[in-house]
Design a protein around this nucleic acid. Sequence first.
DNA 1: TTCTAGAAAAACGTATATAATATAAAGTAT
DNA 2: ATACTTTATATTATATACGTTTTTCTAGAA
Lengths: 229, 229
Amino acid sequence: MIDERLKVDLNQYLPLRDVVFNTLREAILRGDLEPGERLMEKQLADSMGVSRTPIREAIRKLELEGLVVMIPRKGAQVVEITEKDIEDVLEVRAALEALAVRLACEKMSTEELEELRNVMKEFQQAAERKDVYGMVDKDVEFHDIIFKSTQNEKLIQIVNNLREQIYRFRVAYLRRFNRYKIIQQEHQEILQVIEKNQVEEAERVATIHIQNQEKAVIQLIREEEKENK
Amino acid sequence: MIDERLKVDLNQYLPLRDVVFNTLREAILRGDLEPGERLMEKQLADSMGVSRTPIREAIRKLELEGLVVMIPRKGAQVVEITEKDIEDVLEVRAALEALAVRLACEKMSTEELEELRNVMKEFQQAAERKDVYGMVDKDVEFHDIIFKSTQNEKLIQIVNNLREQIYRFRVAYLRRFNRYKIIQQEHQEILQVIEKNQVEEAERVATIHIQNQEKAVIQLIREEEKENK
DNA sequence: TTCTAGAAAAACGTATATAATATAAAGTAT
DNA sequence: ATACTTTATATTATATACGTTTTTCTAGAA
C-alpha cells in the first residue's frame, strides 16, 4: 500500500537548463531583455548563480523557439521583431484560429462553452477595473479554451509559439486603444457562432478577429517608430 | 580589390552542435534511429568523435523540434509517432496549405508558375523510372515553391517543421500504393486554380490534397501495425 | 525458480578547464 | 595623422572532470 501523502511533494524536479530557459524567455517576452541585446554566457551564469552549461543549453532552445538569433562565435542576441514578422505571424495565426473555431463547432463540450462564458465575464470585470494584465490573461484564456477543445496537440503547440512571438506587444496594445470593447464584442460573436455550429460564419469571424488585432498592433508599432524619431 | 576566388572556399564554419544536430535529425527521419530508441550521450559522442557538449546541445534542439522527448535523468529518446499525431499534424498542414495556395493566387510570379510546371514534369519523369526518392523530392519541391511564393517566412518555417514530423512515412507511402497518379493529378489541379486565381477553389483543392495524403498514410500505418502482430 | 538487497557500472546533470576566435587597444611605420 | 600590425583581452566553442541518480548485475534468501 502506498501512502498517498508521499505522492504530494515529489516536488517535480526541473533541470537547471529549463529553469534558465523559462527565466530567459520570460525576460525576453516582458521586454526586460531588449531586442538586439546580447546574451553573454558568463554574465548570465554569474547573475543566475549557475555554470555556463545550463545557460548554453537554454539558449539552444530559445534559438529554435525563435526568440534569439545566434551569430557564430559571437553568441546569442534577442531577435529584433519587424513589422513583416508580425504580419507573417498573424497571417498564419488567423488561418489557425479559423481552423480552431471550425473544429470547436464540432467538438466543443457544454462545459467548455460554459468556461468561455465565464472567461468573458472575467474579462469584462478586468476591463471595468482597468486591469490590463488581467485583460491580457483572460483574452489568452479565451482563445486557449477554443484551442484546447480542438484536441489537436500540434495545433495548440504551434499557436502557443506564435503567440509568444508577438506577446511583447500585447500589453501596450490593449492599454493604448480602447481595444477591449471591440475584443469583447468579437469574442461574443465567436461564442455565438460556435454555439450555433455555424462553421462558415465561425471561420469568417475568427479570421477577422485576428486581422483586426494585426491592424491594431501594426498601427501601434508605426506610432512608436514615429515617436522614436 | 578583393579577389573573387578568395570568397569561394571561405568554407562556412558550422558549429559542431549543428553538425551533430543535422546528423541526428537525418538519422531519425530516415528511420536509422527508431522510435523509442535511447540517445545516449557518451555513445553518440564516441561514435561521432566529439565530446558530450555538442551532443547535448543538439539534443536540446531536437527536443524543441519535437523529434525526441526528454525523460528527466534518463536522457533523450526518439519520439514514438501515433496515428493521432499524424492526424493532428496533417489537420494543421491542410489549413496551412489552404492558406498558402490562397496567397499564391495573389502573389505567385510567372517564373514560379513556370518552376511549378517544370517540377511536375520532373515528378513525372521520376515516376516513369520508378525512382521513389526522386518522386518524394519533387513532391516536396512542388509544395515548397508554393510556400515560397507566399513570402511568409513564418509559414515556411512551420510547414517545414510539420513536414519533418511525418517525413518518415513519405517513402513507404509513395512506394506502396500507386499514389503518384493521384498526386500528379491533384498537383495539376492546384496549378490550374492558381493560374486562374480561383481562390475559393484553390483552398478546396489544396485541402483535399492533404486530406487524401492523411488517409493514405494512416491506412499505411494500420496495415503495418497489422503485419507486426 | 523467483524475488529482494546491495554493490558496481553506466548515464545524466552540472561545473570547470582548455582551445579557438573575435574585438579592442596599443604601437609602429609610412 | 593615418593605416597597418601586433598584442591583450574577452567570449564563444569544445573538452574534460565530478557528483548524483539510475540502471544493471549478482548473491542470497524465500
